[in-house]
Write a protein that binds this DNA or RNA. Sequence first.
RNA 1: GCCCUCGUGGCGGAAUGGCAGACGCACAGGACUUAAAAUCCUGUGAACCGAAUAGGUUCGUGCGGGUUCGAGUCCCGCCGAGGGCACCA
Length: 826
Amino acid sequence: MPARKAYPFDVIEPKWQHYWLDRELFRSADPGEMGSEKPKFYVLDMFPYPSGSGLHVGHLEGYTASDIVARYKRMKGFNVLHPIGWDAFGLPAEQHAILTGTHPAVTTKQNIDNFRRQIQSMGFSYDWKREINTTDPSYYKWTQWIFKRLFEKGLAYVAEAPVWYCPKLKTVLANEEIVHTPEGPRSERGNHPVIKKPFRQWFLKITAYAEKLLEGLELVEWPESIKEMQRHWIGKSEGAVVKFSVEGKDIEIEVFTTRPDTLFGVTFLVLAPENPLVTKLTESGFKELVEQYCASASLKTDLERTELSKNKTGVWTGSYAIHPITKEKLPIWVSDYVLMTYGTGAIMAVPAHDRRDYDFAKTFCLPIKKVVTAEGIEEENDCYTGEGITVHSGFISGLATKEAKEKIIQWLEEKKLGKRTVQYKLRDWLFSRQRYWGEPFPIIWKENTPIPVPDEELPVLLPDLEDFTPTDEGIAPLARKKDWVELGNGLKREVNTMPQWAGSCWYYLRYCDPSNKEAPFAAEKEKYWMSPHGVDLYIGGAEHAVLHLLYARFWHRVLYDIGLVSTPEPFYKLVNQGVILGEDNQKMSKSRGNIVNPDAIIQEYGADTLRLFEMFLGPLQQSKPWSSKGLEGPHRFLARVWRLFMDEDGEGLWVLRKDILEEEAPSHIQRLQHQTIAGVTEDIENFQFHTAIAKLMTFVNELTKEKKRWKKVLEALLLLLAPFAPHICEELWQKMGHKDSLAYEPWPKYDPKYLINEEMELIVQIDGKVRGRIMVKKGVEKEEAIRKAKETEAIGKWLEKATISKVIYVPDKLLNFVLEKNLNSQ
RNA sequence: GCCCUCGUGGCGGAAUGGCAGACGCACAGGACUUAAAAUCCUGUGAACCGAAUAGGUUCGUGCGGGUUCGAGUCCCGCCGAGGGCACCA
């Protein structure tokens, strides 16, 4: 016989899940529909990728949090948009197809069905009428359509560039998809080794939006750490480009520097090995060495060029540049510590004030010229990279770094020898993949010219294939589908597909109008749901800090610039849930075998317990370990709530208690009720769900101790608990005689008069240490409080032998007697 | 190396500069029971004084300083953990 359940969650949870689904209770009202007159609230979860292994408890944390907010906001009178869908293109389904021959579409459907089942068994209040799927042609039609808008704006282009290639996955990957490990660069998906290889690829010109993406961060309420990561990724630096002429040659070398104030400290120039000027600059006697060096540099992995090479390498080209001011001769070197991909691929070396130049100068015995001083920096030949006073620098000597920069830039601009420049680390976004399971590009090639497919011919459908394996040369599997690729007259389809990020760049917009056939979304609906500042609340993991969140911002900003959306930024308030670790305090992973499957927990404890427990683990934003024992607490709590209302009859059946009173509860219970309402409300608003639950527990513990049950108090409890544990609350609400769901009942209000006690406890301290407490009337006078405190034995005995030097009184809080120090004692 | 976040009982964690440890887990004792489970009640930071399961004292929020009548909370300097960036001139 199975153990008796503490309360019949196994019956009531499916019952209410069906009730909500059948009645479409959580359908959001679009503009014009009944309900749209309410203020709207858009609460969004990060787009799930339906993997084969199903959801684990980590995913459910964010979904539970957003569901609590969605349910709370409905009760607060908002028209809530709370959608879900599937980011279903991507590598795992395709890898699975290569291994088993099962079509990715089949795997994807199975996985989605499983995800949907798991999500529904948690009782989340999604509007299932808005469910979307990126692999559905009616969705990716519009992904292609938006790509065309980018193409038309000149923001999508093809170029040959050294890009990351993964031999195992047989595809190129974006910079953002590479993880640098001690074993070398790896693919983020699958952790396979990756190499740099030149390829002809599609790029999106995200760099054109660097400044806008930087500025936009000021408009959103995101964790500061995420904003910082994006700022670093964009990597803006202000400085100047300076031109150097070359002795005996008609060549100009441009360098970028953030420290033009150190121009007088330049002792040599360095070019990146890939810099096309290298060949022209190399003197005949140096050719062999330079060519050899450049060749070996190109073979080096990035790891060797960066992390390992604390020892600088390089060769001299044999030529000299001329200092634009002093006309000194400066040797021109080649070294792989200078990157072709940043700035101009050439630098002016100031060894006295740049660590890397210093190391290089030391290695090759090049001169070091100090041009900045600061207090405490005296040592000869030291490398000082901070700011200070400029010295030995002609007309900028004596100026502080900032002023020196200004003056030299002005001078350079006047003489046309340079100009103020801003550089970004951000690179254009590599947008094509040599894979099958992705959106086809709406592009046809005529010779070497890409021609967009007309809008009315969209979507370009992804054709079926039998063999999904990419070729070893990194050519996409679609190339094999000759009848699809070849269009006659020399016209050929683009065979690459878009990366997985494409679909998630605009899905939150599609939710506003998910079945629109004429447009990605109707302007009117977009305006209703996205005004005034985008998605009101976005909950998801921090692992998307620079990938999805930067790409989506970029697309959104482009759509804003062409007038398709009404806000510059897509996501206003962002909350990152922390990672849930395994019980062993390690990251949950299949290989560690510490993944917790929610299905088993729902079966044993129910969804309400799991929801409550996910939130009770600790602060939402913090990472914290799972604890299977800990589930008992929330489960007992819910059983206790159940028994506040329900009793067992002679046959062991649950029946509503007969002794629930209509009368007013005594004042101490009413006070607690109102304090709980105030506390829980405030905690939800601040995403402090764990303390909200603690307050509800205290409330229930106190009610359990009472002999009587008061209807009004119990009903308030149900409404407060409903966002967290909706099934049990709906059931008890119905048992209490209500016909309708409580999902749209008004959120309980508190009366501030109950929050203030007339008689209150005042803390009495001696020298800041608590020595006693006295009962006083609220707002009591200082003198009165002191008199009362002195009368108390516990306090009196401390004051007897001492002199009071000072009394601190914080009304309604505490009284602190500061005593004169008795130097004789001790 | 640089940037961000965080260090509180046996454990997860709570605390507008004002009673450190709410709430939960675990543990212990008691009630109920023939018994157990479940449930309910009580206790639970450390050391010390005390015959005491009366009462009381001291110490205690990673370490060392500082500001303050008063610091887990603010400031300075360390140490440790996690995350991010990493020759970006």
